[in-house]
Amino acid sequence: MMTLFGDPNIWLPWSFGALLGVSILIYVVLDGFDLGVGVLFPFANGAEKDTMVASIGPFWDANETWLVLAVGILLVAFPVAHGIILTSLYLPVAVLLIGLIMRGVAFEFRAKAPAPWKNTWNGVFYAGSLLSSLAQGFMLGMYIMGLTWTWGNVGFALLTAVFLTVGYSFIGATWLILKTEGALQKKAVDWAKGGIWGLILGIGAISVASPLVSPRIFEKWFSFPSMLYLAPLPILSGLLVAYLWWKLSTLPREDDSYAWSPFVAAMALFILAFLGLAYSFYPYVVPEQMTIYEAAAAPEALIIILVGACFVVPTILAYTALAYWVFRGKATALSYE
């Protein structure tokens, strides 16, 4: 059977590399917007905070599960790489986890704890969202710089930490444009206008840094004819930014039309940026050290996961879609009744 599909030592790692990439991408987009909503917390008043939480309440848990899947795939499909990456990112991982714990529990506590504590839990929610976003941006920066702890690399990672956090607040703001109305929606438009630079600078910094760090990546992008095939990536990104700039200046409209468009454009930008990254780093899972083919677990272990994934992942996507459909429309206050 195997011969039908060629060498399992090639297509299995490739499939899992793709699955890993898709999981990370879905995670970054989905948890990106709900982390971003948390990052925007200090700019909102009390009632707006309730609406903001209501807009992500039914989704955040499932959104975070994509992180578990991504780490899970890295763990099971590329166990050696998983160890190298996570031990070298030991501290930022701990910060990320503590941040995720803080914001995850604050969802519950801010609504259930006695009223005088609500502000405290709002603060915990904000701090947790901020810490998680910063940690993810930091890890992204360190990963791009090859996971070595030098002052220069840490400096770059601190920059990407800020950019990704602002980028998350941007996609969070576009989500709020889609899910809210009235004064909060107006505010969200302003937040989006104020946050778009984070995404631009972030994508820009990574696009400049990664070819400079790695001659291999430079070669992949700036040689003929690949430059030609790749041209759509930066061009489309530029067009999307221009579109967002223009669209945001026209929102919100009386009839609430196009409220969805900034979020969709923001998602598209995240996807393009991610494709660029994936192209740069393929086939490496540990930058410049270990390819997905070297890091892959045994084919007999991978095949049994893949068979399951073929059935389960589409099902997951289907019921995720169901959840988003059930909670479609403007966010209403969350109620157990």
Binding site: G57, P58, F59, D61, A62, Y319, V326, L334, Y336
Partner: peptide, 8 residues
């Protein structure tokens, strides 16, 4: 996923 529907 179904927790969201169950709760809210």
């Amino acid at each position: 996923v179904f927790l969201g529907i169950m709760l809210f």
